[in-house]
Design a protein around this nucleic acid. Sequence first.
DNA 1: GACACTAAGTTCAGAAAATGAACAAATCAA
DNA 2: TTGATTTGTTCATTTTCTGAACTTAGTGTC
Lengths: 392, 392
Amino acid sequence: MSTHLHKQKTAALNALLTSSQRQLVRVISESGPLSRTEMANLLGLSKAAMSGIARDLIDLGVLHETETVYGQGRPSVRLDLHPECAFFVGISLLEDPAPMILSDLNGKIIARQSMPLSRDPHVIAEAITEGLPSLLQAHPDAKEKLSGIGVALSGFVDESQANCVQSTLLGWQDVPLAKIIRERSGVETFIENDAKAVAVSEKLFGSAREIQSFSVVSLGDGIGCAHFIDGKLYRGNHGGAGEIAHCTIEPGGSPCRCGKRGCLDTVSSMKAIKEMSRAEGLECTSLSDIEYEASTGNAAAIRILHRAGSALGLAIANLIQINDPGLILITHVEGSFDGLFGTVVNQAIETNVLPRYAGQTPIRIKRVDGDVWARGAASIAAHNFLIGPNSN
Amino acid sequence: MSTHLHKQKTAALNALLTSSQRQLVRVISESGPLSRTEMANLLGLSKAAMSGIARDLIDLGVLHETETVYGQGRPSVRLDLHPECAFFVGISLLEDPAPMILSDLNGKIIARQSMPLSRDPHVIAEAITEGLPSLLQAHPDAKEKLSGIGVALSGFVDESQANCVQSTLLGWQDVPLAKIIRERSGVETFIENDAKAVAVSEKLFGSAREIQSFSVVSLGDGIGCAHFIDGKLYRGNHGGAGEIAHCTIEPGGSPCRCGKRGCLDTVSSMKAIKEMSRAEGLECTSLSDIEYEASTGNAAAIRILHRAGSALGLAIANLIQINDPGLILITHVEGSFDGLFGTVVNQAIETNVLPRYAGQTPIRIKRVDGDVWARGAASIAAHNFLIGPNSN
DNA sequence: GACACTAAGTTCAGAAAATGAACAAATCAA
DNA sequence: TTGATTTGTTCATTTTCTGAACTTAGTGTC
């Protein structure tokens, strides 16, 4: 009974914050711990107003006091989001079995399990609902304060983060997945494209916290990309912003499954690299194998990696020219960006960017583990909790 | 005396609006005339609050009642910005002599003259100040309500729209032009990059009013580009967003004055087209001439236009893939987009965009007159008046 | 043409949110 | 110990917004 009440309260917590409180939560999630005075200045409010807002948020359990900073005058007390004021479940529909994780407001993974993947949205909703109790079992706190489910998938998602407009991988067309899961599980649910979910998780939890405009290029089996612009995820007019995989990078090149020719995807994706290797008679099952071959001087391997790296570098250079982001974050799962491929990519970026810019746009390479997608998914739920859907 | 007072009042008008009033002005400038009830809904305010805000803005002369719309119930009265509540001066530093125009809040050009171009910012400030009286002479209203000067130039401008970080054309490096002009003339001044100024003018006055995310590609002697994203001009981390002219479009192609090779600028700019024609022995002084040659079957002319068009089309297709804008607006001064060049551009866009997208992104071609840059410049001043620099 | 019906816009008392100024608290520096 | 300095709180006051009742200006019906 008490549990149920609490659940209702936290589930609606985001909704019952005033707009000033929301703004404050947003600022802290971007800047990290801040003193009340700093927050007042950032929000353009008086110290008096801040005092009240902070007190209310502390009472609600959203904020808590952290370290004390000593300077001249009375020391300031930094306030931060309470990492355990809300918990989120993230599910990646990119692999089978599908990973399912439980995370706190800092993106820390607290529990992990998996569930069978399906192409039927109702079966997915069922699997999630059945998986919840065991995921939450050892964490009574999380059970009470579960505030959202996030789902990452390969495909286009609409602006409300509720409907999958199209997914070739899952064979979907206009599937209201979020609603189906929400109704079955009783938990607020949001879905998002895989690359965009990773971008959100890097903005909330990762290495792009303080950067307002950046692009994430995520190298998995395919090539994904997403942009944050002026502190907001930019999804594009049809939700297609960041689809660099189908930029023409070799005009008149190999035919692509999308229908046109010379797409980046046909040269630089892991799938393409492996296929080209096979065609050249190389017995490679992973990028590391090919890198090894190249390091021993195998001409075919070197040629393939050069071609793939140049193409990706050129695409990223075009992205830099077009959008002038404050950071390019390249995430890769396979863990082999240190070899020839990575070198060529970096070089190709350098040579194809306006010399005045060269070196001006930081390129950060980040090796990520198998949890990226699920953590990204959870971050979508966290983002909706923190900032809300109507992110004005 | 009275004049002076009035001047002070209107100059600071923007500053003395409350944040709700500002928001309202912004919404109207985006959506066009609205009834009070519609405005209340859009801003999420009560009818009561709207009533007061509208009254104040009408008293200030910022809004006025326009048509009455009859439906069921009491008819609604649409309110619009009063076009003559503020006037702006726009100057283009792209030509010599430099055009100088006077415009109202609708972007209508009320007076026009020109001034000598200089590379010395103080001489420019002097010329503007000396030009003002004659520009305003026949318009006493504008004299009283002059609210800003905008300057468009080729180069990089910082976020405050006050400093020119770099301009190759003018030979500048960190020139605080806005401040110099402001101090000399006594009028609030803002500067902006040429392509970005055109984008703002299309958003405020032109064909992109209601579109939140779009890109403008402006074809003049060079190729400019600028993006609006979620209703805001996106300038990029170093003010370089939209620099598509130096995207590598023909890897290993002709050397470019920027230092690298195969830039779009080396194939598709008017300058490049003319140069290539000359190299091929064609006696052409304008794009129309080359178009004419092509239409009579001249192989060289056809080849040149094909190459230029394909390159520009590919660059735009990449832009679409990367940003998925709601509109691509191509503005061209030379008035010759109806021929082969235009056809090839359109075709190249189609064939290089993900087939699923093809035709989904509207491409609008707009022939503009010689006033584009000056009008764009004026729109920068208007934008700062309407929305303010701190466009939260 | 009188009547109800509908929706826009206004008014006004009261609630909500933010401010300014005075003050309490917690440290450093001399 | 005393003064300087800066954080954070309190409280009366002002600003801004809301809700409900009301006025206004039409349409539709008989």
